[in-house]
Simulated scan of single mutants.
Amino acid sequence: MLEVFHFITPLQFESFQAQKALTQVLKSLNTKSSYHILPLINLATMDETYRQGIESNTHTPSQVDYAISLDYVAVLSQGRSLARKFLYAMQDQILVRQNAYSRTMVTKILTDIGADMPLFAEERLIANPAMLLTKNQQFANQYKITKNPTAIIFDSNNNESGLIIENFSTTNLDEVLNQYLNKQHTSLPPYLVLHR
């Protein structure tokens, strides 16, 4: 089974594209996978958001990134699949349709995907979402992740190494993952191989 940890910046278009690419490739593989999206908000990852010119009447891009990250983590208590649907819908509204982030948008998307609104409201108010974002940052620091999108991929049948892939919306993901799964590490570029 593949364990995939995908570090993203919610308002980064490359992260949005990489999420779609990785989801598609994981579905096409002949192996089970566990896909974790980990919002990572820091000064290095915020630069892209500012360059894209995401605008809001009431929030700076960093506030919107942080708010979407907290919303996403709050939805996680209802399952990763539902949380991914929420995140994709938010990104589509802001990045593709150019709508401004608002609580009304959040409520509409949560209703559309069938989320439990009282549970979301409760999770959003407690400290756990912020703590999870801190854990994401600690996990990123452990593997020296500084750019988004970046994915760390481990195979449960391979205890020696994993893969680390940056900017993979343009990388031939299915070929790289199949080489990794077939233990053809020698044909992979050394910078992709992550030793445990």
Results as ranks from 00 to 15, higher is better:
residue 117 M to N: 09
residue 196 R to S: 09
residue 171 T to G: 07
residue 155 D to M: 08
residue 87 L to H: 02
residue 125 L to G: 13
residue 173 L to S: 00
residue 66 Y to V: 00
residue 6 H to L: 12
residue 83 A to I: 06
residue 131 M to L: 13
residue 28 S to C: 03
residue 42 N to H: 07
residue 13 F to L: 07
residue 49 T to F: 02
residue 54 I to G: 00
residue 178 N to M: 06
residue 118 P to Q: 07
residue 185 H to G: 02
residue 146 T to C: 09
residue 87 L to W: 02
residue 32 K to F: 14
residue 175 E to T: 06
residue 161 S to M: 09
residue 173 L to G: 08
residue 58 T to Y: 14
residue 121 A to H: 11
residue 164 I to H: 09
residue 119 L to T: 08
residue 67 A to G: 04
residue 122 E to T: 13
residue 15 S to L: 02
residue 167 N to T: 10
residue 21 A to D: 03
residue 15 S to I: 01
residue 180 Y to Q: 01
residue 70 L to A: 09
residue 163 L to G: 06
residue 23 T to D: 08
residue 35 Y to D: 03
residue 43 L to W: 13
residue 32 K to H: 15
residue 143 Y to M: 14
residue 163 L to H: 11
residue 36 H to C: 05
residue 142 Q to W: 10
residue 53 G to H: 01
residue 152 I to Q: 02
residue 63 Q to W: 08
residue 193 V to F: 02
residue 80 R to P: 07
residue 98 Q to G: 07
residue 57 N to D: 10
residue 190 P to C: 05
residue 57 N to Q: 14
residue 71 D to W: 00
residue 153 I to F: 05
residue 65 D to C: 12
residue 68 I to Y: 04
residue 79 G to E: 15
residue 147 K to E: 14
residue 49 T to D: 07
residue 14 E to I: 10
residue 111 T to Y: 14
residue 61 P to T: 03
residue 21 A to E: 11
residue 163 L to T: 07
residue 12 Q to S: 13
residue 21 A to K: 11
residue 121 A to Q: 12
residue 142 Q to E: 12
residue 148 N to E: 06
residue 115 A to D: 01
residue 150 T to D: 00
residue 88 Y to G: 09
residue 51 R to Y: 03
residue 125 L to V: 03
residue 114 G to V: 05
residue 99 N to V: 02
residue 5 F to D: 06
residue 36 H to M: 04
residue 71 D to M: 10
residue 72 Y to F: 15
residue 169 S to C: 07
residue 195 H to W: 10
residue 54 I to P: 04
residue 116 D to E: 11
residue 56 S to I: 05
residue 65 D to L: 02
residue 190 P to E: 10
residue 132 L to T: 14
residue 80 R to M: 08
residue 1 M to L: 15
residue 154 F to K: 01
residue 20 K to F: 04
residue 86 F to V: 03
residue 161 S to H: 15
residue 40 L to F: 14
residue 147 K to V: 13
residue 152 I to T: 11
residue 76 L to P: 05
residue 28 S to I: 02
residue 88 Y to S: 12
residue 114 G to K: 07
residue 58 T to A: 08
residue 29 L to F: 15
residue 87 L to M: 11
residue 48 E to A: 11
residue 137 Q to P: 01
residue 172 N to G: 02
residue 126 I to Y: 06
residue 20 K to D: 11
residue 47 D to A: 12
residue 41 I to P: 03
residue 16 F to S: 00
residue 25 V to G: 06
residue 173 L to W: 04
residue 119 L to N: 13
residue 32 K to L: 15
residue 137 Q to R: 12
residue 92 D to N: 12
residue 150 T to C: 05
residue 110 L to V: 10
residue 80 R to C: 05
residue 22 L to T: 05
residue 135 K to H: 14
